[in-house]
Amino acid sequence: MKYLFIILSIILLLTAPFFGQIEINLFNINDPAFMEYKLFWDLRLPRIIVAFFTGALLGLSGLIFQSLFRNPMSTPFTLGVASGATLGSAFAIVFGFVTLVPVFGFFGALLTIAILFSITSKIKGYDTTSLLLVGIALSFFYSAALMILFYLSSQSQSYEIVRFTMGSLDVVGIRDTVPVIVVSILLLFISFKYKKEIKMLLTSYDNAFLKGVEVRKINTILLVSVSVAIGVAVSITGPIGFVGLIIPHILKTIYKKSSDKLLLATFFYSGIFLVGCDLIARNLGTSSDVPIGVITSFLGAPFFIYLIIRREKI
């Protein structure tokens, strides 16, 4: 069963670039004379790469956040990091820095992290619940700020913002994929480096503390790493919700293993999930691609609810 999943996933990865509004013939992709050459190397392949690594990063971030916050609902989106990035990007669109949208998005995320940590360091002690509450408050604040931007923007700008918030995997050229690849691999590396500490935190904070884990330091390292990675991803693809929530949960119910053992599986299957969703988005036969965020939620939500019901029954 496990191997079947892996094999199916790899087949999906290898064949995904060849399906779309224009079918690609495998034998033409190595010959620059064909239009398919450009289509494959500049559009399809980069898109699959971005889909895979963005999905992987979102899923892994979700798993790490759920472990740190000991709350099955938490993802970087709950903390307002993604909303911060969205607001930054919308700001760039409205005030005419269109080419700098990713940069503004990234700084929106960074600013959010800075605000979160400066506020929580003032709260006595250091508990993740207050961090989560501050994050939720920030999200509401950002939504209000986004409304103001909508109010100030022209119609075409509004459309652009809405389109951004729906998420998009449009990238051109392999070079655009580099940032997502780098941050997602880095995040995977960091999570493996602190695997044992994560497992300790999965018991209880007190227990980790008593066993000699520097709880505060480890928490900060992981939170900042995830937030930076999310900042990069959101600035490129827009906020794509739900991956970080459902994939870790699905894997937990299937594998029945502690979260620290699911880091790699979450990374891989979240990537596959987004590639699959993108494949559907590109092949629904509509004149333009359906936004990826719509597909992830449409597919994910019912399946997720089904799993919850099934779990509660047993």
């Binding site: 227990n207 503390f209 008593l210 293993k257």
Partner: peptide, 23 residues
């Protein structure tokens, strides 16, 4: 330091507190 502290003292609470379902 955290390691030294763990070598010196440990506390066993009245109830096992564990977040993860599968450990």
């Amino acid at each position: 330091g955290a390691k030294k502290r763990a070598e010196f003292i440990n506390y066993i609470p009245p109830k096992l507190e564990i977040f993860d379902d599968y450990i």
